[in-house]
Computed example of a mutant assay.
Amino acid sequence: MSFATLRKTVCTDIDIGTALKEITSNPHIGDALAFDLLDGRHIECAVTDIDDKAIRFDSVDCLGDDMTYGKVEKWLDRIDHLMPDELRKAIIDTERKHTIDGKKVCRLERLFLPAASELFSGDAVLGDDGLYKQMDWYKDRRHRMKMDEHGGDSTAYWTSSQRSGNSSNFCFVSYSGYANLSYASSTWLSAPVCFRIRKS
């Protein structure tokens, strides 16, 4: 059985199934679910959005893996298979919007990266204009800052957003929580993990 720490008003070490039931029955923005992946790495995910059907979790930090943009999809698939079984069963497919080479496309994803327009407002969305609105959670720059691993140093990380008019540049978030862009071949960037689970 896998265990998790649920942070609401108090910290509680309980099994993941019980933690998920508690969160899905009475979710609050900022609730955190902390657990170990099957390879032993620790991950903490905060509730960042709640709608009528599901609850969104975003990892508070990255997992210390540097990668080019082209490796993100395989990396997310590997992380998905390292999730504890109870959590893997609870994660639902999420329709995600992307602008690729000027065309808007939608696809279903289990784990995903945040879009630049969910993290930033105004001109900082770098090609995502109209896809998403800035989430309230990310209006606080501190929530956009992520460490390279639990308890590590601040790191730059990929978003899912391609720069408008340029297929080789993608938006990333800097060490200090601001929008920037880099070539897809850059290998010094990490990635956060986002997923949704159905409300009870």
Rank of each mutant, 00 (worst) to 15 (best):
T24H: 10
S25F: 09
N26C: 14
N26I: 00
P27S: 07
G30F: 05
D31C: 01
D31H: 01
A32Y: 09
L33R: 09
A34P: 08
A34Q: 13
A34M: 15
D36F: 15
L37K: 04
L38D: 06
D39E: 03
D39I: 01
G40W: 06
H42N: 05
H42D: 08
I43M: 09
E44N: 11
E44S: 10
C45Q: 09
V47Y: 10
I50S: 12
K53E: 13
A54F: 15
A54I: 13
I55T: 04
I55P: 01
F57Q: 04
F57D: 09
D58W: 00
S59L: 05
V60G: 00
V60L: 04
V60K: 02
D61T: 04
L63W: 10
G64V: 10
D66I: 09
D66S: 11
V72N: 07
E73R: 03
E73P: 09
E73I: 00
K74M: 14
W75S: 01
D77H: 05
D80M: 15
L82V: 02
L82R: 05
D85H: 12
D85I: 13
D85A: 15
D85P: 12
E86S: 12
R88H: 10
R88A: 05
R88Q: 07
R88F: 07
A90Y: 03
A90L: 11
I91F: 09
I92F: 02
I92H: 06
T94D: 14
T94V: 12
R96G: 12
K97G: 09
H98M: 14
H98D: 09
T99C: 15
I100F: 10
I100Q: 11
D101I: 05
D101N: 12
K104V: 15
C106K: 15
R107L: 07
L108R: 04
E109K: 05
E109W: 14
E109M: 10
E109Y: 11
R110P: 14
L111A: 08
L111R: 04
F112Q: 04
F112S: 02
L113A: 10
P114E: 01
P114C: 04
A115R: 11
A115E: 08
A115D: 13
S117N: 07
E118P: 04
L119K: 00
G122W: 13
G122E: 14
D123P: 07
D123Y: 13
V125M: 04
L126F: 09
L126R: 03
G127A: 04
G127W: 00
D129M: 02
D129W: 06
D129L: 02
D129G: 02
G130S: 05
G130P: 03
L131N: 03
L131V: 02
Y132L: 06
K133E: 11
M135V: 00
D136C: 00
W137E: 08
W137T: 03
Y138N: 03
K139Q: 10
D140N: 13
R141N: 01
M145F: 02
D148G: 01
D148M: 07
D148I: 10
E149Y: 09
E149H: 07
E149F: 09
G152C: 03
G152K: 00
G152V: 15
S154W: 14
T155S: 06
T155G: 03
A156H: 02
W158H: 00
S160L: 07
S161C: 13
Q162A: 11
Q162T: 03
S164Q: 05
G165E: 00
N166E: 07
N166C: 08
S167G: 14
S167A: 06
S167V: 08
F170L: 12
